[in-house]
């Protein structure tokens, strides 16, 4: 039995953990740090429910060993809210009815956040590509894409066009 010492920043807080060699980041977050917003769906990188942002990149936390992460920074869905204020993406998901059963939502939000952090004004194709690793079994993709678009500063205008009277 060997433990690995890992310094990890999670949602801005620093932790020093001693983890086993086979502990997945998903388990560290859920079981040790009680961040149960991180969901386990498939456990094999297919569904994206466990998506977190690791050093600026979206990853499946079920496919990452915590022992590898000394010095890393992790953001989970719990880290999106700042001083009681929801992240604009979270508010947009509410406003656009992008949450149905809610199980995929934390992962969807993290994939979307990772995209917007790198590319604040993605087009629809870029949004679709950013969430291609996240499954929504309620199949509410349309609303999810619209929610992300609205934060990307593109959706509002397109939505308005729909209601405009076009005599031609």
């Amino acid at each position: 039995m060997k433990k690995i010492k890992v310094n990890l920043t999670v949602n801005g807080k620093e932790f020093t953990l001693e983890v086993g060699p086979k502990e997945r980041l998903l388990d560290t977050l859920r079981e040790r740090l009680k961040l149960t917003g991180v969901k386990e769906g498939c456990g094999i990188g297919e569904c994206g429910a466990c998506t977190v942002i690791l050093n600026g990149e979206a990853v499946n936390s079920c496919l990452v060993l915590t022992g590898q992460l000394d010095g890393s920074e992790v953001i989970t869905v719990e880290g999106l809210e700042v001083e009681g204020r929801l992240d604009p993406l979270q508010q947009a998901f509410i406003d656009h009815h992008a949450v149905q059963c809610g199980f995929c939502t934390p992962g969807m939000l993290m994939s979307a956040r990772a995209l917007l952090d790198k590319n604040p004004h993605p087009n629809r194709e870029e949004i679709k590509r950013a969430i291609e690793g996240n499954l929504c079994r309620c199949t509410g993709y349309q609303q999810i894409i619209e929610a992300i678009e609205s934060v990307a500063g593109k959706g509002e205008e397109e939505g308005a066009d729909y209601f405009e009277w076009d005599p031609d």
Binding site: M1, K2, P21, K22
Partner: peptide
């Protein structure tokens, strides 16, 4: 958690 540690090296 100790289940993860059984006979494994890193």
């Amino acid at each position: 958690p100790e289940d993860y540690f059984t006979a494994s090296k890193y």
